[in-house]
Design a protein around this nucleic acid. Sequence first.
DNA 1: TTATAATATGCGCGAATTCTAACATTAGAA
DNA 2: TTCTAATGTTAGAATTCGCGCATATTATAA
Lengths: 105, 105
Amino acid sequence: MPDRKLYELHASICQSLSHPKRLEVIDRLRAGAMSVTDLADSLEISQPNLSQHLTLMRQKGIVTTHREGLNIYYRLANPKIVKACDLMREVLLEHLEASAALARG
Amino acid sequence: MPDRKLYELHASICQSLSHPKRLEVIDRLRAGAMSVTDLADSLEISQPNLSQHLTLMRQKGIVTTHREGLNIYYRLANPKIVKACDLMREVLLEHLEASAALARG
DNA sequence: TTATAATATGCGCGAATTCTAACATTAGAA
DNA sequence: TTCTAATGTTAGAATTCGCGCATATTATAA
């Protein structure tokens, strides 16, 4: 696979994490699988909108699903996703702290 | 700071990594600082376009700059950025491998 | 079969992203 | 000061994204 294609795929992974509600989905799924309805209640967004986000995340390999009767449960596809998110959160907090320190003089 | 704002900032960090050329910038800067011209040559994109990407990355705290005469050198602001990128790359590769295994039956 | 709950999909529009091309700025040299 | 190299900025067009809304699908129950 050419590097160019890999960078594009890599970017599309990051893209699937670059929405507040999708990051919140990841946080909710840290503890384990959840149904769409429970996620929609927890995130306070409409079911169709959540479904759109989940479809995207499934296509990118961020989450996987399994059905139990009427419910479909989503879980994180790879524990490294949580680690990556945590690292980016740390980068954010350290940047905020550095900016605040600068502002304080 | 409210959670909602933190998720938005977190998403904007991810957003700044969700472009093939910006990911390539990060790879180029792993070894240390580089000037804009050298980066533009290495990435094969126009200097103004690269400058736009770099401006975005600087605003999000991904890179920092220092000037030496005519040149401005960019470096990674935080080593955790590389770690996060590496993890996401691993998630990608593992997803690709799993998909390929599925296709093989 | 009909009804209902859970989830997914298609469409249209406004907003955001990305690129190109022209122009502006900055710093050093002549 | 004038010139030039390095970098940054702006405007506009094309593309993509995100959401609301209506509708479709899927599985179970009656």
